[in-house]
Amino acid sequence: MILPHPHRRTFMNRLLILPVLAVLHLPAACDGARRTTDPAKTIHARAGKPFRITLRSGSAMGQRWLRVDSAAAGSLVLVDSGSIPPRRITIGGSGHLYWTFRSSRPGEATVSMMRVLFSDTTRGTDTTRFRVVIR
């Protein structure tokens, strides 16, 4: 009996896994929304077009991000939210959380996010704000 070379088997396994990983990341990568991760940069969006805010998940550390509703959010409407798994599975590794917004009219808005512990959602451990200008 002839056994395949061990490197060939590993290569074939990788070829089988790649399409699966591509399908898992497809919804997050192909929705057409512009992504923003840096709160220091102003988000420039067009009225009616989606944009996405992405933050590193703190679920491995017992934390999560909550969107803080306020009047500063203006005409922004949340149209989608979810999580993106980490590219490499590691112990304590974290993926990303995303929120996709859309506005129907031009103006300015602020999206406020607060990181809280799973056990205590009343006190935030960190806050961040994204300034949005809609044309």
Rank of each mutant, 00 (worst) to 15 (best):
E108I: 00
I2P: 11
A72F: 02
D80P: 04
G58V: 01
R56K: 10
R67A: 05
P4G: 03
H96A: 12
T128P: 12
S94R: 05
A73R: 10
R35L: 07
R131E: 13
V23D: 10
V23I: 11
R102P: 03
N13W: 08
L16G: 13
G95L: 00
I91L: 14
A71W: 05
L21N: 10
K49N: 08
S119F: 14
L24H: 04
G92R: 01
D80F: 00
A47I: 02
T90N: 05
G58W: 00
L55G: 03
K49V: 06
R34I: 05
T37F: 09
R123W: 11
F11S: 09
L26F: 14
A73V: 08
M1R: 10
P4F: 07
T122Q: 12
T110N: 09
S119V: 09
P106M: 05
R46S: 14
R35M: 09
H96N: 14
V20I: 11
S81T: 05
G58Y: 00
P4K: 10
D69W: 11
T121K: 14
H5F: 14
R9C: 06
G74C: 00
S94E: 15
R34C: 04
I17K: 07
L78V: 05
T110L: 09
T54C: 10
T127F: 08
S70L: 02
R67V: 08
S112F: 07
S75R: 06
L117T: 08
W99N: 03
M61A: 14
D31Y: 03
V132Y: 02
S70T: 04
W65V: 02
M113P: 11
L55Y: 04
T127A: 07
L97M: 11
V111K: 01
V68F: 02
G74Y: 00
I134K: 09
R56P: 10
P86S: 04
I17C: 07
A45P: 01
S119C: 09
D38F: 00
E108H: 10
V133P: 04
A22G: 15
Y98L: 01
V23S: 11
R64Y: 15
R52P: 01
G93V: 03
I84V: 08
G32W: 00
V68G: 02
G58N: 00
L3S: 13
M61H: 12
G32D: 02
A60I: 01
M12G: 05
N13C: 09
A40T: 13
R123E: 13
D120T: 00
T128C: 09
T37G: 13
C30W: 08
M113K: 07
T110V: 15
S83C: 06
T10A: 14
F118H: 15
R56S: 12
G93I: 03
V77M: 11
F11W: 14
L3M: 12
Q63D: 08
R135I: 07
T36L: 10
W65L: 03
G74Q: 01
V20D: 03
T127E: 10
P50V: 03
I17L: 13
W99F: 10
M114K: 13
L76I: 03
R52C: 04
L97I: 07
R129D: 11
